[in-house]
């Protein structure tokens, strides 16, 4: 129910997925017992148990999406490593958020993201992505990139914010914010695989698209690919 999704948000916590209203369900996260409303995600339960799970495409103002693959966990009796954002809690569930294998998987994911991110902007950045890198202890990657998005031009058409596709990890948060929060549906992800990219309107510059500059996409972007121009002295220069 949308009611609790909005009214139970906290400024200093990101539960990862929207709060829900419902009967209490009890589970354990890394051995800690926690009760959360039915319909909540494992990610939210872990956040409530102070066992924060790393994440990039998830935030509690948007419905879960499950694309970044950073929030993988182990659940007793289930095979594989389900994404905690898209997995709904169940009574008696036993969740493990930290293990050697999970550490290895998450590191692999972060290294892949890092391999297509402007290297010069890793130090000194302060986005959620930078925090995830620091928490995962990832500073380098083993790949020799053949093809990257690093030379894609920056869209500076909007007077207030810019979009640097080189920093975009196509997590869809901006697209979902434009739809779910603002309701303008100005953004989309177009193309498939490596070619997939965030596009405004009919693949137009932001300023010329039907974007209404509400800032929801900028607010939710985890990598500072979408960012306020007011945070830069002078013109934006990548790298």
């Amino acid at each position: 129910m949308l009611w609790s999704e909005l009214r139970d948000l906290k400024d200093d916590v990101d539960f990862g997925t929207p709060p829900r209203a419902g009967a209490e369900v009890t589970l354990t996260v890394d051995g800690h017992t926690i009760s959360v409303p039915a319909g909540s995600s494992v990610m939210l339960a872990a956040a409530k148990a102070q066992r924060n799970i790393p994440k990039l495409c998830a935030t509690d103002t948007l419905e879960a999406w499950g694309s970044c693959r950073l929030c993988l966990v182990e659940i007793e009796g289930r095979s594989g490593y389900p994404a905690s954002c898209t997995t709904i809690v169940a009574e008696g569930m036993a969740v493990t958020t930290q293990s050697e294998q999970l550490q290895r998987l998450r590191k692999g994911v972060l290294e892949l993201y890092l391999s297509d991110f402007p290297a010069e902007d890793v130090d000194g950045g302060w986005s959620e992505f930078h925090t995830a890198l620091a928490q995962g202890g990832v500073t380098t990657h083993p790949y020799e990139p053949v093809e990257t998005h690093l030379s894609t031009p920056v869209d500076v058409s909007n007077p207030y914010f810019l979009f640097d596709p080189a920093k975009c990890i196509v997590c869809n948060r901006c697209v979902r914010a434009c739809e779910e929060i603002q309701g303008t549906f100005a953004l989309t992800v177009q193309g498939r695989g490596f070619d997939s990219k965030v596009a405004a309107g009919q693949d137009q510059p932001f300023f010329e698209s039907d974007c209404v500059s509400c800032g929801a996409c900028v607010q939710t972007c985890p990598t500072q690919a979408l960012i306020e121009k007011s945070l830069f002295e002078g013109d934006y220069i990548r790298g």
Partner: peptide, 23 residues
């Protein structure tokens, strides 16, 4: 002042904003 970001605990906006207030 370098930026205005919407407050998630704002009872009217729950972390949302418009072009006027935000920019």
């Amino acid at each position: 002042l370098v930026r205005m970001t919407p407050w998630k605990e704002g009872k009217a906006n729950h972390g949302h904003s418009c072009i006027k207030g935000r920019f």
